[in-house]
């Protein structure tokens, strides 16, 4: 591998890792703060991708689809928290797994009834549908660079919200000690609703952004769910920064594994997880 292709593979790794972070950050927030094991998180990614497909077909623009899709995803998240998840906080993990697994089946069936089972492509917005010549034979699609840029901006925004705002302070406090936060007069139920809606919106946004490059297909949520859990476990449950570091590690391991160790590329991510857990059983960073 020459230096130029090493750099391009690094770019690929970053892009994949950042997208993964978007999905996993929501999962780890909900898991860490609300104590909910949400198996349906991958479905939110799938829902995002299908929202992008449907709204792009209807409006003719992916940008417009995303602008409409984010409030929609927030609404879906808030509704689900109110209708279902708010009843789960005091129950054990087994019941959470049961409900969220059921949700996966319901979402997949709804998708099948409403949209069908075909594989769909989503058009890249015209102004991003081009490639930059990087080496004499290789060009890089601009859309992939744009995704990475959006992910970086979101990561910074997330950092700002969690570290610098009152909401973030409450989130961090709630993560540490729920009872104390309640005792201080903070409406923890409302905060949970906001966090859950945010988690859903992050996953859905990742789905919307990924739709043009990964295409939109049945069960697309399940593979993302598994890899997102890997990220959460490597990063340390509940830690957003851990999720960022872990997502990038997974992105690099997966991308370079595919070309350097093609024989074991399927399990390389899990090997990395095993090694990290041997080294730090609680994950790289424990708390947000």
């Amino acid at each position: 591998m020459d230096f130029a292709s090493f750099l391009i593979q690094t770019l690929n790794s970053l892009q994949y890792g950042l997208l993964l972070f978007l999905v996993a950050s929501g999962l780890t927030l909900v898991f860490g703060i609300m104590g909910i094991i949400n198996l349906a998180h991958g479905s939110f990614y799938m829902i995002g991708a299908y929202i992008a497909f449907v709204l792009t077909s209807a409006t003719g623009s992916l940008m417009l689809a995303i602008a409409l899709g984010i409030p929609l995803a927030l609404a879906i998240g808030a509704f689900l928290e109110w209708a279902l998840f708010s009843h789960l906080y005091k129950r054990d993990h087994l019941e959470q797994v049961l409900l969220t697994f059921g949700l996966i089946l319901i979402f997949e069936q709804l998708r099948s009834i409403l949209i069908g089972d075909d594989v769909h492509g989503v058009a890249i917005p015209a102004f991003l549908d081009m490639s930059i010549q990087l080496t004499e034979v290789m060009s890089y699609p601009v859309y992939r660079l744009a995704i990475s840029a959006v992910c970086i901006v979101l990561a910074i925004a997330l950092y700002y919200v969690i570290q610098r705002t009152r909401l973030g302070m409450m989130i961090r406090a709630g993560n540490d000690d729920r009872t104390m936060v309640e005792a201080l007069g903070i409406n923890i139920n409302m905060m949970y609703r906001v966090v859950f809606a945010l988690g859903v919106a992050l996953a859905a946004l990742a789905g919307m952004l990924a739709a043009p490059i990964s295409s939109v297909y049945p069960n697309m949520g399940s593979s993302v769910l598994i890899i997102s859990f890997v990220v959460v476990v490597i990063g340390g449950i509940g830690s957003v920064w851990g999720a960022l570091v872990a997502a990038l590690i997974v992105g690099f391991a997966d991308t370079f594994g595919k070309v350097l160790l093609p024989e074991i590329s399927g399990m390389i991510v899990y090997l990395v997880m095993a090694v990290v857990l041997l080294w730090r059983p609680e994950g790289i960073l424990k708390k947000a």
Partner: peptide, 21 residues
């Protein structure tokens, strides 16, 4: 070089980069 990826994965970017190199 003989490369492969799991079915039905469609993230080809790392392989395209390797081909270019």
């Amino acid at each position: 070089k003989d490369m492969s990826l799991p079915f039905p994965n469609v993230e080809f970017q790392p392989f395209l980069t390797e081909i270019a190199s």
